[in-house]
Computed example of a mutant assay.
Amino acid sequence: MIKNIFKISILVCLITAGNLFSAGTTGFNFLKIGVGARPVGMGGAFAGLSDDINSIYWNPAGLAQLKNREMTAAYLSWLEGINSQYLAYAGPLKDNKGVIGVSINSLTSGAINKYDISGTLNGSTSAGAMAIGVTYAKGELMKGSKNLSGGITIKMVQETLADKSISVPVVDLGLLSKKAFSNNKMSLGVNIQNLGSGVKYINEVDPLPQNIKVGIGYKTNEKTMVCVDYNVPNDNAGYINAGVEYKLNEMINLRAGYKTGTDIDMGVRAGFGIFKNNVGIDYAYAGYGDLGITHRVSLNYMLGIVEKEKSNVKKVKKVKAKKEEVKQTEIKTETKKVEDNSEKIDKLCKKAELYYTRGKMKESLEVLQEVLKIDSTNKRARDLFIKISMQKK
């Protein structure tokens, strides 16, 4: 019974005005739970990087960077048997008209036993939440600023507790500059999350968990990306997310990060990603103090990248075949040239040898050079040439 009471307490904090993570009071607090194992593994610092489909949550402007269609499915094993599922798809529109994405984020508790005031089991109930969103992002927002992109996500958010439910529209806005500074290694992003009217629970109205994210991404070298986000929530003091991603090789990425603040979910984050051809899997670990550990797994799929790689492979093979053909033609030409001049080469070699026996080194070298112009691999001429050169030293 205690376990069920604890589970209900967590859900009430997420779904009603009570805020599990802060001293303030906001509604729809499940929107604070970050999605995607890659960003979470980097400590939740992603607003200034946002270079994949996870941008839908962390900074919708980053979706403009997508060159291929992408899909992701993520699963979060949260606290006390509460789970979260996330599904998203995004792809570029034709004629460089931007990138569009759709996403579904849900939180489920499963069956929760109900007890009356005396502690007697009185059936079961359930609780959950869902956000369905559409995202649009566009690069080159202004003329002459092709590194500046913008994005917007419009979500319909619903929460359910027992037989009660409530729905409200929510908006996220983002900006991203990929080369914000002169060194071209640093990017800057801003994301305003969860704009909208308040949430009315019976007679009370609570605000949405709005947050302003300002993030920086810095590429220290070809293998390492460092990110830092500063958050300004409307229900608590500001806090920092910091993280790093290291490319171990072409297939494996390692990640680590840290979240500051006074919430119970502050602390170390870690994870890794494995990507091969067009399929990737990401994992992230995050601790919640005495409440336990959470695990996130994301499965990512890039549509179209395989065809592109196959096309590139065909082009490379074609270039290699052409180079080999040219090489073989040159060898045949050289061989024929040697064969046609074999008698001439023999006479020149004898002439060079005669000069050498008579001590006329200069004249011998001149004749040998003539031989090597015809056949650069002629062993007879090369040996004598080296012998004379060594003697001159």
Rank of each mutant, 00 (worst) to 15 (best):
I5S: 08
I5F: 11
C13P: 02
L14P: 03
S22E: 11
A23D: 13
A23T: 11
G24M: 01
N29T: 00
L31N: 05
K32Q: 05
I33F: 01
I33H: 02
G34I: 01
V35G: 12
G36N: 06
A37F: 07
P39V: 00
V40T: 05
G43H: 07
A45H: 10
L49P: 04
S50G: 07
D51I: 12
I53S: 02
N54R: 04
I56W: 04
W58Q: 03
L63H: 00
A64I: 08
K67F: 02
E70C: 10
A73G: 01
A73T: 00
A73R: 00
A74R: 01
S84I: 09
S84M: 15
Q85E: 12
Y89N: 05
G91W: 06
K97M: 14
K97W: 11
I100C: 08
N105F: 06
L107Q: 03
I112K: 03
I117H: 14
S118A: 03
T120P: 01
T120N: 07
N122D: 10
A129N: 01
M130I: 05
M130A: 05
I132D: 03
T135V: 09
Y136E: 01
A137Y: 04
M142G: 03
K143Q: 11
N147S: 14
N147Y: 14
L148H: 04
G150T: 02
I154H: 04
E159V: 06
L161Y: 08
K164F: 15
I166V: 13
S167V: 14
S167G: 09
K178S: 08
M186G: 00
V190Q: 12
N191K: 11
N194E: 13
L195F: 05
G198D: 01
K200F: 12
N203K: 15
P207W: 10
P207M: 15
K213A: 10
K213R: 15
V214I: 15
G215P: 06
G217P: 03
Y218W: 06
K219D: 08
T220L: 10
N221Y: 09
M225K: 12
G243H: 02
E245S: 03
E250L: 11
K259I: 12
I274L: 08
K276R: 10
V279D: 11
G280E: 07
D282Q: 13
Y285P: 02
Y288S: 10
G292P: 05
H295Y: 02
H295Q: 13
V297K: 05
L299A: 15
L299D: 14
E307R: 06
N312Q: 15
N312L: 11
K317M: 11
A321E: 12
K322T: 05
K323G: 11
K327L: 13
Q328W: 12
K332A: 09
K332H: 09
K332W: 07
V338C: 07
D340P: 00
K344M: 13
L348W: 00
L348V: 02
K350M: 15
K351N: 10
K351Y: 07
A352S: 13
E353Q: 09
Y355Q: 07
Y355T: 03
T357V: 04
T357S: 04
L365G: 02
Q369T: 15
Q369L: 10
Q369M: 09
S376D: 11
D383V: 14
L384D: 00
K392T: 13
